[in-house]
Simulated assay, not measured.
Amino acid sequence: MKIATWNINSVRLRIDQVERFLTEQAPDVLCLQEIKVAEHLFPHEMFERLGYTHRAICGQKGYHGVATVSKVPFVECSRYDWQDNGEARHVGVELQGEGKGLIVENVYIPAGGDVADREVNPKFGQKLDFLARMTEWAAKIDRPTLIVGDFNIAPLESDVYDHKALLKVVSHTPIEVETLGKFRDAHGWVDLGRQFIPAPERNYSWWSYRSYWRQKDQGRRLDHMWASPDLAAKARAHHIIEETRKWEKPSDHVPLITEFAL
């Protein structure tokens, strides 16, 4: 089973790119973040045509939003408001049929603004609180679970192009890394990206629109696929589909795919 995650940065704007990705890579399940569309306006037709007939959409107008689409039957099992303000940032599904019982959690963690200080930047505090609520939830998990999405944190020194230069930049600050580490430890999550591409090997999933990414390669690893330990043992391969960043008017993120032998 191939499960993919991708911050698409507007699913309607980049629907042709999603179709190309699905046609070329053919994942069984795709988790999208930052779909930027209300649920009733989600572009169902293309997914239906390609056989992704099972969909769980948690969206809102113009901002945020997540969607999980699948060829494999599933039932939606959760929508957590870890932001505590009603923003559409999570949806969880339980697979049926092949992979029956596997929980796939799709999350879009807040970026956290530009200043790494909750006193002067409330968005940064919201990000840390979001992670704290996720950590409380993770401590209670008792089933094989895969959590994927845009975590908006690059935790390791080798997850960014310049560790020292980014220590005070939101997404790589020590407090964010520490807070994400508490979430990891609450369930014993296995970071599949680093299981298959061990540090310090290059492993980026995001490049700013502000720099010429192919020349400078100023990337960060903000997107993740983390698995329960017993599920991680069934992972067989992990891929970064970096070529999508070369497509015309691309998302600033690229897709990740993990293959499992379930």
Rank of each mutant, 00 (worst) to 15 (best):
P255E: 08
P174C: 01
V11Y: 03
T145P: 08
F42Y: 14
Y209A: 09
E34F: 12
A26E: 13
L95T: 03
L50E: 02
W189V: 02
T173H: 07
F124P: 00
K182S: 11
R210T: 09
E94P: 00
I103Q: 11
E94W: 01
D217T: 07
R221K: 13
I57E: 05
E243V: 08
I240T: 02
T258L: 06
A88Q: 03
L13E: 12
K71R: 15
E87I: 06
I15F: 06
V177S: 02
W82T: 05
I15D: 07
P27T: 06
S78P: 00
K123L: 12
E98H: 03
K168M: 07
W6V: 02
Q96N: 01
G181C: 11
L256E: 02
R221T: 01
Q33T: 15
W6P: 00
V160Y: 03
N85I: 06
R79P: 08
A237E: 12
V177I: 15
I147P: 05
S211K: 12
Q215M: 06
G193E: 09
A154W: 11
E34Q: 13
G99A: 06
W189H: 02
I109E: 00
P200I: 10
D230H: 06
I141C: 05
G86A: 04
Q33E: 04
Y161R: 06
R202L: 10
W213V: 00
V148R: 06
A56L: 05
W206V: 04
E136Q: 13
T135N: 07
D117S: 08
K36Y: 05
P43V: 14
E259S: 14
R202E: 14
D81F: 10
A186Q: 12
D223M: 10
Y209H: 14
V11T: 13
N7R: 07
E39T: 15
A199Q: 03
I8K: 07
A186V: 06
I241L: 13
W206L: 06
P255L: 11
P198G: 05
L32E: 03
L13I: 13
L131K: 01
T145R: 12
S70V: 09
L256G: 04
E136K: 13
R79L: 08
F130Y: 15
K168W: 01
E19Y: 02
D81S: 11
F42G: 08
L95N: 03
S208L: 11
I240N: 02
A111Q: 12
L146V: 02
P229H: 02
K123Y: 12
P122Y: 04
A138S: 15
A165C: 02
